[in-house]
Design a protein around this nucleic acid. Structure first.
Lengths: 401, 401
DNA sequence: CTGGATTGTTACCGGATACAACAAACTCCC
DNA sequence: GGGAGTTTGTTGTATCCGGTAACAATCCAG
């Protein structure tokens, strides 16, 4: 409700908006910025001057214009100079990326990991180690402006502590705090749920660009989700918003790890599919196992087909419920749900036709993730960049001291 | 993304913020406004001067201060002078209220109506007639600054047309347009879904004040809902957000009017309860019939108790799903669901314990509507006032010509 | 090479808020 | 009842931000 000392606020906001433009939209000419932001030429110049002086963007003459008139300077993000660290803790791997302003992945390391084990010391140690390696390779004029991590689990908004997850037992893990300490950059590490951040990623740089209402469904061991409502990530009161995995789609269904029955996760998760296909425990686990089922079904394997069909029905019912409640413009399937959806699109559409209301269904678009496995890392990077976009000059002033 | 000519924007925003303070918070001293809005004394003075000159607020010396120092002028909304018309089309009644700035219901008329009949001409005619009667009784210096209607049905965001609802057949009803024409005030009539507007009302003036994430569930013939996420009403892409009535809570359940099976509406709607209690068709309909079931259960009627129990189970499962997905701070039961919840709170809580995840459940509060039947009217009034709060001076300049 | 078009650059203007100083009005205490 | 202390209204000034306008720079077309 408060407005604040508004002179500075305006400037902050406009600087952030301009930076967000070139961060998300790539190199943009001043002329385009002038029209898209609705500001005057002279104002745009003042803003870009500030950002250039801060070392956040660079202005260059365009190669070819093709049009009459003086060529407009192109504003491009200082991708190589200004960067963040993005971390990802998935059930099957951990990954670190150095992501430049503008969203370029400059460097990246990852390693597999054993499922179900979550030793805070070990994890943060490995991640920080990767980050240090990458940092040593950077030139001296580069500057790290933030860090964020995506974890598969619930992250409490109040303090960023991981409170539950497939890898966690009863205890709570102060993941961000510990990782921040180990990094030793004097930067706080934001933490977010992996599916939430993947949703953010698809919204900013994936299939969901310019889509203000979308639902992203992510499958790995469990089922997670992220909801963009009105252009903003739905966080919920404590930060657990979008946890669609435990929506009950079949009250008499399979037992779920959460203690309930017939959760989306229990009916559509990796284990459900593999068990239905008679492949649980026997062969490989994870993404490859799911892909194998879909391929078998494609080749005519009846058991695989029926497994996919059943899972697709439940998935479709879950999507129908979400569509009825949210009326999104788009639903995006990511992680292993990408394969499941591609293998059972007919069932999903049938369930939608049965259970979703006409008006909500008519303009709905079903898509698969455009960013794939990189989605969580990209989302974490966006989270890390968020405070830079909120107040560009403050961040750089602090980094340059 | 665009910022606009920001000098004016700042002023507009601050004027709106100040007006919203006194509109929602009641009479407020300049000193309080200064601290709450984070603006300087002199700025607050300039803002209140403008609003006073426009006739939107009045400044008065307070009765008693009780504290040292010069008493701060109290800014109060011009409730008697500036008003809107709020309309409500429920299944069982239609209502019109004249609501003053600040949310005071100055005048109100309503009449019962037959269910299931929706004749556009007739409805808008009756509503406009009520409004004209009220308008004749107002003094000359009063000014109507807006109008909005709550309807039980889906309202398409793009054009405000009612596209589906318990009272509608296949056709679409340009309700707002027609009502606006009949009113003849030169004002557009905004239209919103009744449950959405009731949610807005509870959020601004009911149990949900200062709650940024809440779910409001409304029961009459069907089940509607309104979701406030991050302080904003969740509209969805086409405006059908919050339509929780057709979430499937029992795939093998009762047939629903929408063509699906086991929808929340079909399982816990009025008809479901009355049929389970063996009272459908025989006795009275509507709110009174529901109340009778709850009272019978209280007196020990086994059939009524079992009916309530079953309905409460389904309701609880639906709420658990919503809680998992949204992680709201509060769930509010309104309309006939108020009675249902009061009569089956134990079942609802049991289902929550079974199906809702711990972290989401722990800090959740379950409440009943504070505004009761007035919620939809109050919500419609808020919708009507919305554009006044967005740009106070423009609206009044136009009204005074 | 000239004319038209588009944009960068600069100086100036109007508007909005903060700040500071003074006046006004209240409470408390003697 | 009156003075001290406190809080707030009021007014004038300063600062900052964005818009406007005029001019210079640079491109394309012919």
């Amino acid at each position: 409700m408060r407005a604040g000392p508004s002179q500075e606020d305006i400037r902050r906001h406009n600087l952030g908006a301009l930076l967000r433009h070139v961060h998300l939209g790539g190199p943009t000419s001043r002329a385009e910025l002038t029209s898209k932001m609705g500001l005057n030429r002279s104002t745009i110049m003042a803003l870009t001057s500030d950002l250039t002086a801060a070392g956040l963007v660079r202005e260059e003459l365009p190669r070819e214009t093709g049009r009459a008139g003086r060529p407009s300077l192109v504003v491009r993000p200082e991708s190589a100079r200004v960067y963040v660290f993005a971390f990802d803790v998935s059930p099957d791997r951990i990954a670190v990326a150095r992501v430049g302003l503008g969203g370029v992945i400059l460097d990246r390391r990852e390693t597999v990991r054993r499922r179900g084990v979550f030793v805070l010391e070990e994890l943060t140690g490995a991640l920080a180690g990767f980050a240090r390696q990458m940092r040593r390779k950077t030139r001296d004029d580069t500057v790290c402006v933030g860090a964020a991590a995506a974890v598969s689990g619930g992250v409490r908004k109040a303090d960023g502590v991981v409170t539950f997850g497939p890898n966690l037992k009863a205890e709570e893990a102060p993941f961000g705090e510990e990782l921040g300490r180990k990094l030793g950059l004097g930067l706080p590490v934001s933490v977010g749920n992996d599916a939430n951040l993947a949703a953010l990623a698809e919204h900013s740089r994936g299939v969901g660009v310019a889509v203000r209402d979308l639902i992203y469904l992510h499958g790995d061991v469990g089922i997670g989700g992220g909801i963009i409502a009105g252009g903003h990530l739905l966080g919920g009161h404590d930060g657990y918003g979008g946890e669609v995995g435990h929506m009950v789609v079949n009250p008499d269904g399979r037992a779920c790890g959460c203690g309930s029955h017939g959760c989306l996760e229990a009916e559509v998760g990796e284990r459900a599919l593999l068990e239905a296909a008679g492949r649980f425990g026997a062969g490989p686990q994870g993404r490859d196992a799911v892909r194998a089922v879909v391929e078998a079904a494609d080749r005519g394997d009846i058991v695989a087909q029926e497994a996919l069909s059943r899972v697709g029905d439940r998935l479709g019912l879950g999507v129908a419920n979400l569509v009825n409640i949210f009326n999104p413009e788009m639903v995006i399937f990511g992680g292993m749900l990408r394969e499941v959806y591609l293998g059972s699109a007919a069932q999903v559409r049938t369930q939608l036709a049965l259970h979703a209301m006409g008006p909500q269904r008519e303009r709905l678009r079903l898509r698969t993730s455009a960013l794939g496995d990189a989605a969580t890392l990209v989302g974490a990077a966006e989270l890390a960049f968020a405070h830079v976009l909120a107040d560009p000059l403050e961040v750089l002033a602090r980094a340059n001291t």
